[in-house]
Design a protein around this nucleic acid. Structure first.
Lengths: 205, 205
DNA sequence: CGTATTATGTACCGATTGGTACATTACTGA
DNA sequence: TCAGTAATGTACCAATCGGTACATAATACG
């Protein structure tokens, strides 16, 4: 018998008519701009261009749609901010990260600020699910920078006495703070000046 | 004729029965913990122990009550964080600020985090009033630190080549980020380690 | 074909929302 | 003592909220 992939049963019933990714993009933009509580299902379904039963069928409920939107943001936009971490020189990684991030939070890909820093903390006080998700996202960003700074330290780019953990959390903290500042309309130059101080702090002896 | 203060007419009508400050404390605690949208008027009036008409008579409406609660927070708790700025030595000012702030955002005076960093950014995307208030509060904290670092620089405590403006905004940014981290349950030691890096950055050459 | 299955569109649900009308109560001033 | 004034308590409002029942439409299977 020829080795055959387990015949996955084809999809029954009426096919989904909307593009799940496009719908998530629209939901993300809505939650990002208005926060969780200020985004109503009417707004969401209008922006996503689907009706309520389709939304509930595809995403569960409003809370789960919000969580999916945040995941979508992290995977799509957050990941693009972290892409410069693969730069061989630490200075390039840091500057590339802050440049990309500042472009992003000043409106390049959507509303000003970042959905994580600007909308999740408010929900974290009410929803354990949101609190856990926020903690997980922060851990992920911290972890990425801690690892990157650890190898930079091994390569002799930063002083041996520095603590990669605290420095990684400092860099990630910069992202949170700049995101909030951008929400009120802060200019790129202002944000970049703050980022410069953080970069300098990483390279201090 | 003896110079007399313009006779202020005494208060007419039934006197107010609640303590405005205590009511504001309760409103602040509610908004702080649950954010603006998740705090209903039923919750607010119950926490404040007043009825709706009294709330509207004294504070206008929900949005204005929120703004007043934030002002109350800034004047009461925010000011206590900034009190160490009067320390003669800059290091004492910085460490006193971060110690007080970390105690605060980890729950000493109320819910974890700070109402400014954790609940205002979400509203700033919807309400121009909230956005302007958030910008004003950030300006105030930035300004306090910029002034303090300016005089520290004049006193030779930090290097002449450093930029007090960027450094002041860096310190204030630390407050924002630590506040968000505290919201998810981060421990004091973690927050203090990040603060230490910021303090070190201020004193770098 | 017919049947099973799944998505869509409409129309609706009870609950909750922010906000207010109105009668009552407690005070000041003449 | 009585009129004027302002806060309180109750009870209510229209609007909106998140979520769903139900009939219809579109597919796969046999």
């Amino acid at each position: 018998m020829s080795t055959r992939k387990t015949t996955r049963p084809r999809k029954r019933g009426r096919p989904v008519e909307f593009d799940r990714e496009a719908a998530l993009d629209a939901a993300l933009e809505t939650f990002w701009r208005r926060g969780y509580g200020n985004a109503s299902l009417d707004e969401l379904t209008t922006a996503m261009n689907i009706n309520r039963p389709s939304l509930y069928g595809a995403f569960g409920n409003k809370e789960q749609l919000y969580a999916a939107s945040v995941d979508h943001y992290v995977a799509k936009i957050g990941a693009s901010y972290l892409a410069p971490l693969t730069e061989p020189k630490l200075a390039d990684a840091l500057n590339g990260f802050f440049d990309a991030m500042i472009d992003g939070v000043t409106g390049k890909h959507g509303p000003r600020g970042c959905i994580v820093a600007c909308t999740m903390p408010a929900e974290a006080g009410v929803s354990p699910l949101a609190q856990a998700q926020l903690a997980a996202v922060l851990d992920q960003i911290d972890g990425a920078w801690i690892a990157r700074l650890g190898s930079a330290q091994a390569a002799g780019e930063i002083a041996k006495r520095r603590d990669p953990r605290a420095l990684g959390q400092l860099v990630a903290s910069g992202m949170l703070a700049l995101s909030i500042r951008a929400r009120t309309g802060a200019k790129k130059r202002t944000l970049r000046a703050i980022a410069d101080e953080i970069v300098a702090a990483v390279f201090a002896p």
